[in-house]
Design a protein around this nucleic acid. Structure first.
Lengths: 189, 189
DNA sequence: ACCTGAACACCGTTCAAGT
DNA sequence: ACCTGAACACCGTTCAAGT
């Protein structure tokens, strides 16, 4: 089988699931594909761009919420879907967070939400979505790190249900804040 | 001068400021101190714990807000102070974010805020502070990454003032949300 | 107790040379 | 065009041996 960008991405996803982000090296990807490490650079410019491609693969699985009428419900659903997609893949939150910070991910995951908030007359749709995104990523990074340490027996305490409850609280806080700032402004007119 | 834990931490801070987190290696720290890399392991168990110590150094510079009466003002002031301390040191947000996620930082930076919210009768003080902390860290990680890329001429656009405005919006959002959830509950009684 | 020297098992990336 | 082989310049960590 000939080497290709997609084959490299698939091998990367396999290593990510099986061994985690810390063990995802270019040499290991090459080994899986039965090829020398240098060969990868014919199809991918560097490791960062491979990681960005893996991030896009993860973000591609986030469905748009069905509810198109209530912005609060839409935002809540989006945050939950994003979390679910991140939790589905080992170390996905850390992977996506760093790729996004470097600005290497093509599609903007907050695009649909921003468009919705704009349509509905909310203020600062970009800053609002950025706030929600930072919270989701930060929360799930911590969640996946702690869960993994617990699995390795390093640290005892990890309550998945409590973690989920704290996630929902954070989303409620941000969504309520967006609604309140909208409401304050409406009163002023 | 004899090697010591503090000397190692200080050398680490120096490298961080001068070259960034990516160039902060145990070997480089050893070089600065005129010592072999292996010698460090007599004073520090591993690199992660050194990074945690550096994080504590950064977090130690965050002052508690003066305003003890208005919780909203306190939270806002705390978030601003934390951001300022992170921006003062190269790559500090990324450093602190990863150390905190690994649970290696001794003192909990959200402690004072949690105690305040508890005293004032807010709900879920822990989840509320975690939300604010995740936002601040996520925002400043992105801010420092983008500013550095801009300094290197990699990417053109970085507007520090706009970034600060978006930060303040995020803080307002979360603080307003905390107030709203408190208010809703008060009405129910 | 504290440090050196040297090793072990890795990295990302480049590049002449082959096909 | 695509890949190998080999190198370059690094990593974190361990550990016998010296003082």
């Amino acid at each position: 089988m000939a080497l290709s960008r997609q084959a490299i991405v698939d091998a990367g996803l396999g290593i990510l699931d099986a061994y985690g982000l810390g063990d995802l090296s270019m040499r290991r990807v090459a080994d899986v594909l039965g090829v020398q490490a240098g060969a990868l650079y014919y199809h991918v410019p560097n490791k960062q761009s491979l990681l960005a491609a893996l991030s896009e693969e993860v973000l591609g699985t986030v469905p748009d919420p069905l509810d198109d009428t209530d912005p609060a419900a839409w935002l809540t659903g989006w945050a939950m879907s994003l979390r679910r997609s991140l939790l589905a893949r080992r170390d996905a939150a850390e992977l996506v967070a760093s790729s996004l910070a470097l600005g290497l991910v093509g599609p903007d995951p907050t695009e649909a939400g921003r468009a919705l908030l704009e349509r509905e007359g909310f203020h600062e749709p970009e800053a609002t979505m950025a706030t929600l995104l930072h919270f989701v990523l930060g929360h799930v990074v911590e969640e996946q790190t702690r869960a993994q340490m617990h699995a390795l027996g390093v640290v005892g305490e990890f309550d998945a249900a409590a973690s989920g409850a704290r996630f929902e609280w954070g989303v409620r806080l941000i969504v309520a804040g967006a609604g309140r700032l909208l409401h304050d402004e409406a009163q002023r007119r």
